[in-house]
Design a protein around this nucleic acid. Sequence first.
DNA 1: GCAAAAAGCAAAACCGGTTTTGCTTTTTGT
DNA 2: ACAAAAAGCAAAACCGGTTTTGCTTTTTGC
Lengths: 337, 337
Amino acid sequence: MLARKNGSMSISEIAKHLNVSKSTVSLVINGKAEEGRISKASAQRIRDYIEEIGYKPNALAKSLATGKSRTIGLIVENIGDSFFGPIALHIEEYLRKHEYQVLYSSTMGDNTLAAEIVQTMLEKQVEGIILAPTDAMRTEVEHMLKSKVPLVLFDRKIPNVQTNYVGTDNYEASRQAVEHLLQQGYERIGMVTIDSQQPQMQDRLRAYREVLSEDGREEQLLYVSFLARSGDPVDAITKWLKKNPQIDGVFFSTNYVCIAGLKAMRKLDREQTLGVITFDDLEVLELMRPQISCVRQPLEKIAKAVVQMLIEQLNDRDKPFNEKIIKSKLQIRESSL
Amino acid sequence: MLARKNGSMSISEIAKHLNVSKSTVSLVINGKAEEGRISKASAQRIRDYIEEIGYKPNALAKSLATGKSRTIGLIVENIGDSFFGPIALHIEEYLRKHEYQVLYSSTMGDNTLAAEIVQTMLEKQVEGIILAPTDAMRTEVEHMLKSKVPLVLFDRKIPNVQTNYVGTDNYEASRQAVEHLLQQGYERIGMVTIDSQQPQMQDRLRAYREVLSEDGREEQLLYVSFLARSGDPVDAITKWLKKNPQIDGVFFSTNYVCIAGLKAMRKLDREQTLGVITFDDLEVLELMRPQISCVRQPLEKIAKAVVQMLIEQLNDRDKPFNEKIIKSKLQIRESSL
DNA sequence: GCAAAAAGCAAAACCGGTTTTGCTTTTTGT
DNA sequence: ACAAAAAGCAAAACCGGTTTTGCTTTTTGC
């Protein structure tokens, strides 16, 4: 009775030890003793022995046989991020209720890497993929759609590709954000965003532009490097604020841009004089003086919707694609003097 | 030539199509055509066909056959946390260099859940586990040690159990932190920590106590609920600060306690009058006025050490256990007036 | 009391790979 | 020209499970 590397025995070894066949053991283990017409006595004997040796099934073998890996792939931009981290936590928690585990990866915005990750996950037979795509993943996504891999995109989608998708009302929420700044009396509002084609960023940008143009105001835009390789965004924003002293309010397009912006403002000692609003909530916003308002995405709701949509697709591969927009809330904090 | 669910073909199907045997195809795929003595011609024909149909191996079958899953389990307290999130990111990046993917889970401090997670990961045949244990995982850890699963603990260890471990110099760094507050002229320093037996927290606490006692000072301690279920830590800290108005400086034991503390201070309008230092760095610390100093753990170095230790163990199962302490740095920021 | 039905299980086929073995055929050496 | 060696590959065994099939033996019905 040789033990395997992991210390446990295989079903065949158990069978041999008890002088029964593999199938009998397997049926008992899976609670199919009844329908397999295994006698109470044999079943109990097998159960006892399994208990005694602490048998642990090899999930790889099981998955290979059943075609179910009980694993979902989660691909985000950066698991260490204050948006994706909590989302990942909640996705994991909801998936656990359905007895799935999560194989995760961060793309850091790298398209080549993202494609590789998808590839490896599919080879590992994940049953579905949850993906915040980088901006050039059309091919991979289309490929997955064609092979009917259950897939849910979130946060951003692929333009002109029909998929399951969960996101927020980027355009509307951003409009409200910019309008709020205007209502607060700020006159010359700038926006800092990233130099990426991600559609959700484009929507936020468009909202800013349209609000300003409808009000007959001039826009003042700064793009900072998304991949954070070329140059320091704090520097870039600092220079921009210096060069445009007329700006009295700023709309940041996302969490890490906002952090960079706040650092720049601190360097220039302008925390009190600039009106700020940002997409995505951050702990720091509540702690600043003055506090900073934001567009707050309901992370848990998003995670819940993502998982629900994936589970539905898993239950019915031919279910038509679904899009769910979870509204963000304008979190208004103490107005800056 | 029936396609499988995932759209790809199996090796047997390829073999059948080309009138060769499975083994031949397998050898060619794995670049073992030479040593398998497959003729150039056959090899090329197989390669061409594989290319043509875009063959994708089933990693489950491969892992079952080879005993290598190329997957590592990562178990942390909370992937959405500002400590564990970035650590997870870096761990993932380093593991990728060794062609491993990560199966992750957050325990949220729940021992039962943590044990289940370990169990499932082992069944899925992860090749190793990286674990920030909850405070009652002795059994699971000992079990893994006995069955020689490559294992690295980090952030906290299990008292009196010899394992691989990567952590920081909690005691020394905390001493420096408290001493720094004293040097800054704060007289009555309190500490807020969590009601958990985690050894790293105990070390931080002990450091605080010893520094104060050596200086003949009285300690002022507040334990907030770790599981964040019973009551709001912000309230608890607020009350504590009110009840102990003599406190002029506070040492927070970890990131989320600090956030709660800062919120309490803000409520009481005491950001200017309390000296604060905390374990773990946070974006917000740099942005506050006054800025807040902290003990900064080198997250990337920790991640690197963790992965390196795991890889070493994977390469030699009988390697003696190793402990690596990565020193934290006291990040001193602009002193509060 | 005897055929048909049900019980109880062993055996085999399968999932999709890897690796070892061993059978032809061709090449080499003398 | 003939044996030994090498080339080229098919076949089989294996990894650890699940599930279907089918062979005994016992039970039931009449």
